[in-house]
Design a binder for these strands. Structure first.
Lengths: 226, 226
DNA sequence: AAGTGGTCTAGACCACGCA
DNA sequence: GCGTGGTCTAGACCACTTC
């Protein structure tokens, strides 16, 4: 018994075999290190990984226990749309549908957490081999966009942001919705069709950067390994 | 400059400020350790975290470079449904709609990767404060279910599995779909309404355990911090 | 062959959170 | 307080990859 991965496996095995039941306190790092004949840091690495995966819950002083109701954690990759299209072996295309300056609707202001007044509104259509793949509806903080405004018909806003604007945090959510009139038209599907929607909001340390809603063509799947 | 989090922040700042441009090779761990006045292990921890987040790409011998097309990684929590309902402050309820033994349809067999012959088919409805919350359609490997079959009207299959069956791996995917006839009826919505669908497949090291499709009531959102 | 990141060790100090 | 996990160090060896 040597590497942290072997130790992680052994600990997992004890949990799966109910040698360490759900909710139970397991021995401390020092004890396990001695039992396995490794340094405490190695045990720490193994247990930390399991905690990150949601299998264990660790607290200073309280010790480490097996999670009672294991909350599985899955890691999602959120690629740039162009990369996603190309990964499918299709040809990426981009069409700028609308670019204007105006005040965002109330729900968008609410999500951003503050009213920035006028913002840059961009609507684009991402194409995979000529077919509509994703419709993007985005509001951008004017202060992050230079004057003149970059050509968002050549480089998608997302890719431009990644390369030119630093940011700190954000959130993302997924839902199902019925395709809106113009969204359905852009994607070439019937209005009201069930579509997968991604909504993202990002902030720089001190101010909002952008809010975006991505409507994916029917059949879209987001998947990952558990 | 001391902790790995500070070093991570400093490295991030250099990337965001384009001092280290996208795709560029950054100094080795040893050099950074000297510059920051810390041990190499500390730099390693900081860079490893950034690599896990998709900001850096690391390869032995080749060195560490800034990811050219940053793939954001988001971590999703996949809770047990009961916990999800209770976290909303609602009362959880469970109703067993169907329990039978039979052969799964072809798409399910395909997903599982092998034909197990007859399987246990369970359909349940999860309720939040009496309203339909999730419809579950599940096929279980007969060999993981004891005889007699547990009371899946009292404890959901998922919770029973968590507590009684060890497993190794699986995958999960999310999509949008139009609600099917019986699903719509169970949820109390119009047939064809846009619903959020979670599909999960899990395997023990050597054999499939279960395939499940969860249809969430309209309005369901899956969200996380980036 | 050589350079880079990945891991391990033995020891140490510290922060947190219970009592 | 005091026990636990979280982190840092200095040094070492190893695995992988490119040259």
């Amino acid at each position: 018994m040597a590497g942290w991965e072997e130790i992680r496996a052994e600990v997992l095995a004890r949990i799966r075999s109910r040698a360490w039941p759900l909710g139970a306190l397991i021995p401390g790092e020092a004890a396990l290190a001695q039992e396995f004949g490794v340094a405490r840091a190695t045990v720490n690495r193994a247990l930390s990984e399991l905690a990150r995966a949601g299998v264990l819950e660790r607290k200073r002083k309280a010790g480490t226990r097996v999670a009672a109701l294991p909350v599985r954690k899955a890691t999602l990759d959120i690629p740039v749309i162009r990369a996603e299209v190309e990964a499918r072996g299709e040809v990426y295309g981009l069409r700028l549908l609308r670019l204007e300056i105006g005040r965002p609707p109330v729900p968008v202001v609410a999500r951003l957490g503050q009213d920035l007044g006028e913002m840059v509104h961009v609507q684009t259509l991402h194409l995979a081999s000529g077919r509509g793949f994703v419709v993007e509806d985005r509001w951008l903080n004017r202060s992050v966009v230079p004057d003149p405004i970059p050509d968002f018909g050549a480089v998608s806003v997302n890719e431009w942001l990644v390369a030119h604007v630093s940011y700190a945090s954000g959130d993302i959510s997924f839902s199902a919705d019925a395709a809106d009139g113009w969204e359905a038209e852009a994607l070439g599907v019937a209005a009201g069709a069930a579509v997968f929607v991604t909504e993202r909001c990002t902030w720089a340390p001190e101010h909002p950067i952008t809010w975006v809603r991505l409507v994916h063509a029917p059949g879209y799947r987001l998947s990952t390994l558990l």
